[in-house]
Design a protein around this nucleic acid. Structure first.
Lengths: 208, 208
DNA sequence: TCATCCAGTTAACAACTGTTCTCTGGAATT
DNA sequence: AATTCCAGAGAACAGTTGTTAACTGGATGA
């Protein structure tokens, strides 16, 4: 049971969320390392100094954005990769998940793709940590599969990383295709599907 | 035969190169979208206004950096992927190339990884264009292989993109491992090799 | 009811930014 | 030898930046 917040705490969280939203919007067209504190407060409509009530610095806000963007995604990924249905079904399920997620939260996806190798170390590390968690979760699901019999632990992790990286690449392709035609998005869907299929075929014959 | 430049042109090119070098160094710890014109000129040791003699803007300098970083890489990739030797040999050749290139030009690699999805549109587009060229070149090499018999053009390109993306991922992993131990770099080598191997196995059974 | 707390405000700071216009001195051209 | 060219310097511009300190006023808890 979650405790009901007082008026004060509630208003604070609301402002904090406004900071996150405004920052995310501004980051559509620039990198975090060039995002200014005053720029964010101006977008939110508060005084510059109000920023410090919520975040120590811009990198700190960036780390909070990473949690918002990836934190709630773990159960979805877990479920999508899970061992129900045959390979082909799981693949189309995964591609569908990615396409839907990108369409629903494009700026989150853009933020992650942009800052994964971006110029702000703490944010890079936060993203790296989350992606490592995804890899471990995918690995755990893959290990359940009878297909994984005879595989070394290290090889399962190798495959899991391949899947995770591939999902990110596809997400970024979907993002680019978002403003394009429906046909363009369809081409991305087919490309992502075939690439996952090829990897899965490689998995099926790994022990040959 | 290249024309010998006058003293004037030679000095100009030298200064221009100093701009590129200084910018690349500064970009080790930030993104292009936060790189300041004055910051660069200060690092080069010239007046701020001298910048305009060489570049229209910072994004313009960024595009020049993309050409410097990727332009000369095409023949190497072409040769590495070429159809001499068996798959296993080609894979270790490719991983070796990546490891060496990252060790020799780490800041170039970092720049590309960082700005591929970065906040500066013209630079993103320049990188995207170069990567598309790589994909086409790899595709051309793959098509030569007897293994490619029966493949659709589209599927060969799909595979080529997979290889190119995978190479970039590996390059970025090598980059992270650069300051680490030799054992850490070795683990990246083994990971990259196995991932390429799995993709190649997928290729071998694609038409089953 | 009254004292405490604290999210957000106001004002001020030195330092920095990109861009303009004008100038200079040596190379290039005639 | 005389003229043109042009890479770089210098000074000045209005705006911006992050951070500090002291404040206000409404919610909170005794």
């Amino acid at each position: 049971m979650s405790h009901t917040l007082g008026i004060r705490q509630a208003q604070k969280q609301k402002t904090r969320q406004a900071f996150l939203d405004a920052a995310l919007a501004l980051l559509e067209e620039q990198s975090l390392s060039s995002l200014g504190l005053r720029e964010v407060t101006r977008a939110v409509g508060v005084a510059p100094t109000a920023f410090y009530r919520h975040f120590r610095s811009i990198p700190d806000l960036g780390v909070a954005l990473v949690d918002e963007a990836l934190g709630s995604l773990h159960p979805m990924v877990r479920e999508t990769v899970s061992t129900t249905g045959d390979s082909e079904e799981r693949i189309s399920r995964a591609v569908e998940l990615i396409a839907r997620h990108v369409a629903a939260h494009p700026s989150h996806v853009r933020f992650i793709a942009r800052e994964r190798h971006g110029g702000v170390q703490p944010v890079r590390e936060a993203i790296g940590g989350q992606l490592a968690r995804f890899a471990l979760e995918v690995k755990a699901e893959l290990a359940k599969d009878p297909e994984a019999a005879g595989w070394s632990d290290d090889d399962v992790l190798m495959l899991a990383r391949l899947y995770v990286d591939q999902m990110l690449i596809s997400a970024s392709l979907f993002l680019e295709a978002l403003e394009g035609s429906a046909e363009e998005r369809d081409r991305v869907t087919r490309l992502a599907t075939r690439q996952l299929r090829l990897i899965t075929i490689g998995r099926d014959h790994w022990l040959d």
